[in-house]
Simulated assay, not measured.
Amino acid sequence: MTDSHPLPTAPVAAPIEKVSIIVSKGSLEGIYPALIMANGARNEGIEANLFFTFFGMDAVHKERHDHIKVATVGNPGLHLPTLAGVIPGASALMTKYMERQIEKLDFPGIAEFVEMIHDTGAGLYACLASVELFGMERDDLIDELDDIITVGEFYDMAAGGQIIFT
């Protein structure tokens, strides 16, 4: 006996065409995931925009983007007691370790990675509120930055796509 009722099939999702990635953390483990995701999106032909806000601004700050550290205090991913993170030199030690691991994978440094992503056509935007909050000027930020925009302008840009918060 055959079943005359076919099994239901899952609907096919439309492919992702656009992602807007919010970069809010200024640590190595906060910035790299956003850059890797934006780079991956561009490699797949997906439109990508990065919106740097709060401490994520360090990734596009001329004097800070080469000095990003691993956050050791209260970072559960390190599997260390919180107290160990406050030991002098803990952050520097973990940062050096992570930089070596990143280098082994042949990932570029943050400044080079941001430039590379920009060169693929991804948009790079700084949050106007964060720029004002931290007393920054346009000259403090990297040349590759496309613009300093409001949150409303970011939402307009992100419309119709996926928003990823890192």
Rank of each mutant, 00 (worst) to 15 (best):
K69G: 00
K18N: 13
G77Y: 00
K69R: 11
E29S: 06
N43Y: 13
T9E: 15
A90W: 01
A41I: 04
A38N: 03
K18H: 14
T95Q: 01
Y155D: 12
F107Y: 05
I31N: 07
R138V: 02
A13K: 15
E153S: 06
E132T: 15
A122R: 04
A41P: 01
T82G: 14
L50P: 09
E153Y: 04
P76L: 02
H118R: 09
L83R: 09
S27D: 15
I102T: 07
I46R: 02
V86R: 14
G89N: 14
G56E: 10
H61I: 11
G152D: 10
G121W: 11
A41S: 09
I102M: 10
E99Q: 14
S27V: 05
D156F: 11
L83K: 07
K69A: 02
G135C: 09
D139Y: 09
Y32C: 00
E63R: 11
D143R: 06
I21F: 10
I36A: 11
V86S: 13
M57S: 02
V70S: 05
I87D: 11
A158E: 11
E99N: 13
K69Y: 12
R138C: 05
P81Q: 13
G74E: 04
L145G: 04
I21A: 06
P6H: 06
M136F: 12
L105I: 03
T9D: 13
S20W: 02
A158G: 10
A71P: 07
M98K: 08
E47R: 10
L145D: 06
H65S: 14
S91K: 13
T9G: 08
S4A: 11
I102A: 01
S91V: 09
G30K: 03
K96S: 15
R42Y: 09
A34Q: 06
K96L: 12
G26Q: 05
E137N: 12
I22R: 05
M116E: 13
N49I: 02
A92D: 13
F54M: 10
T53I: 05
V12N: 11
D66Q: 09
D119K: 14
P88F: 10
G45K: 09
V60T: 03
P81W: 05
V114T: 04
M57N: 05
F154G: 10
L105G: 10
G123M: 01
I21C: 15
